[in-house]
Design a protein around this nucleic acid. Structure first.
Lengths: 342, 342
DNA sequence: ACAACAATTGCAATCGGTTGCGTAAAAATA
DNA sequence: TATTTTTACGCAACCGATTGCAATTGTTGT
């Protein structure tokens, strides 16, 4: 096996009897280099199998064309779609994406943030870990003019870009849909998280919708979960079905929870949607697989990823850090399917 | 907003009136540095908010402690679990993971490979794009002693590490399971792909299982798909259900396909599993959501990811490139669920 | 033919850790 | 006390691309 040492611009320079500066400029079509030389350099570079060393360029120029992505996990459909969106947009502008998972751990998030900074990423896109209660570990980015975009699970009081949906309105719409389908005793699952306040917002929407339709808010119909998992969903569903009478509707702020409710209902012989209507959240793939098909709220993951990446790239180009750190709201819609049919 | 310039070892050296070499060594507990100095340096580094510049270290040492992952997409459950496994293992050894998606395009795969090389990754883990027919773009890694591990969809004749399941045996097991459950006319979906020959292997297992049980292999029961998608699965299923008599079993080499078959059957009033038994592949989340629950073949995604990352890291530490480039086979099992019940 | 200017290319410093080698100071040995 | 050995640290080159400025060559104008 041949041991090709990496080909550098020095090798090209030597071969062509030119200076490295000329090679460097020729390779990026600098206007002070003649067409003849540019052609010659590019041809030789190609022949020699030259691949620029990103590290050297990054070190010298203090910019890496790399976007760091810090998210709880890549295995949730919403987040993997988010990544996909980021990646597509990044690629178009020739940016590389580094992905790190916090596994919803604060400690890991802190470490990963440091690692991203250490890698001198040009920008950061982050969805907060569940555990995270303070955001001091993001100051290193803000303080060094590295654009930072929070997505979906965002801190409330951090002056930076945010890409989110209007969770309040989404929760309101979901609940209103159930009411319109005839529900009058609507349960809700929620989860505590101070910083990424999206569950609180959805709950607020739920409550407001009930009030606006003169439906009493019953505390026993609102269950607080420790974690948004299938297992916890089953537990909560069983608790709801132990009530008499059982509620006639459920707004679950995640499709996994909604699915767990549907399946628990089935097991207990409760008919969905006849006796119990369910609407989920996210429009995960499973929502179209389960029988009955799950009504849900769209959560434009890929769009959000694209939007976040665009903000980073745009901000990096303009080089002004005095831009307003606006919040981008993307739309959500009710997808009415079988699980809420009258 | 304060504009902290990045703190460097030069800053620390100046503050403590030491040489940068001493700082550098102290920070990594070099034995020639006194404990007193080490403590002092670390404390000061902490105070000053020093974060090492990975680029500089990588450039100098020509190693980045970064693993490049090149896969078709992150949105498939199998692949996102694979990433998860890679990431967990990498993190333990303090490696960073860069993820790139080929979107099953040969051209993108070539570009991304170049980008990874350009970023001087320490190792590469790759699952081939569907389109890929030649692997010349991986020579740059092999030629430069950068460990390369192919996972799942691997080239047949490339002398490097491979982490796979035994697709032949898995296909055999799946088919045998259907036979044991009483099927005698078993259909199969497959897809062409010369390099990542896993569908061919599964098909081989299918055929051998039939032969071993004295069941005739009928060409009309084997449908070749253009793509492994829900839509193509529906088309194929409809084609199968147009036959008379319809087959009584199906081995689908992917849960999405299996699900499409189950749902198509339902729509046409064909009862699963009474009239038509289905076994899928991968044990995707949807396999436990669909009604009836889907029998399937386990595909140990996270384990494969961990194994691949371990190979990379181990190889990087031993620094011998003459190791045997062995193939790692991970086990698969039949998960018998409702969709193949007698 | 010569100044003035434009078009090309070269020189050398720079980014920030890393590391081989050299050296001064402290400790051990003769 | 003189000499050898350790211990602890400094010097300076290095990785490879970038870029401000200097230098060279080629053009145009008068």
């Amino acid at each position: 096996m041949e041991e090709n040492k990496h080909v550098t611009i020095y090798d090209i320079a030597e071969r062509l009897n030119l200076a490295t500066s000329t090679i460097s400029r020729a390779l990026k079509d600098h206007h002070t280099i003649s067409d003849k030389t540019i052609k010659k350099v590019k041809k030789t570079a190609e022949e020699m199998g030259f691949v620029p060393n990103t590290l050297a360029a990054g070190l010298r120029g203090n910019k890496t064309r790399t976007i760091g992505v810090l998210i709880p996990t890549v295995t949730q459909p919403f987040l993997s779609s988010l990544i996909s969106g980021i990646e597509i947009t990044a690629q178009k502008s020739d940016y590389t994406v580094i992905i790190m998972q916090s596994h919803d751990s604060y400690e890991e998030e802190v470490n990963m943030a440091k690692s991203l900074y250490s890698n001198r990423v040009s920008g950061v896109i982050c969805s907060l870990a569940m555990e995270t209660r303070d955001t001091a570990h993001f100051h290193q980015f803000s303080n060094n003019n590295i654009p930072l975009v929070f997505v979906d699970r965002v801190p409330k009081d951090y002056n930076t870009f945010r890409v989110v949906i209007d969770n309040y309105t989404a929760g309101y719409k979901a609940t209103k849909h159930l009411i319109e389908q005839g529900c009058i005793r609507i349960a809700h699952l929620t989860a505590g998280s101070e910083l990424g306040n999206l569950y609180n917002e959805r709950k607020r929407g739920y409550i407001e919708a009930l009030k606006d339709h003169n439906i009493e808010v019953e505390e026993e119909l609102i269950i607080n979960l420790n974690s948004v998992t299938y297992e916890d969903g089953v537990k909560a569903s069983n608790a709801l079905f132990d009530l008499k009478p059982i509620p006639d509707g459920l707004f679950a702020p995640g499709d996994i929870l909604a699915v767990s409710a549907v399946q628990t209902a089935k097991k207990r012989g409760i008919k969905v949607p006849e006796e119990f209507k369910v609407i989920g959240f996210n429009n995960d793939p499973i929502s179209q697989i389960i029988d009955p098909n799950l009504s849900t709220i769209t959560h434009p993951a890929e769009k959000m990823g694209k939007a976040a990446a665009e903000i980073i790239i745009k901000n990096l180009m303009s080089a002004k850090n005095d831009d307003a750190k606006e919040i981008t709201f993307l739309n959500t819609e009710v997808l009415a399917r079988e699980s809420t049919e009258k």
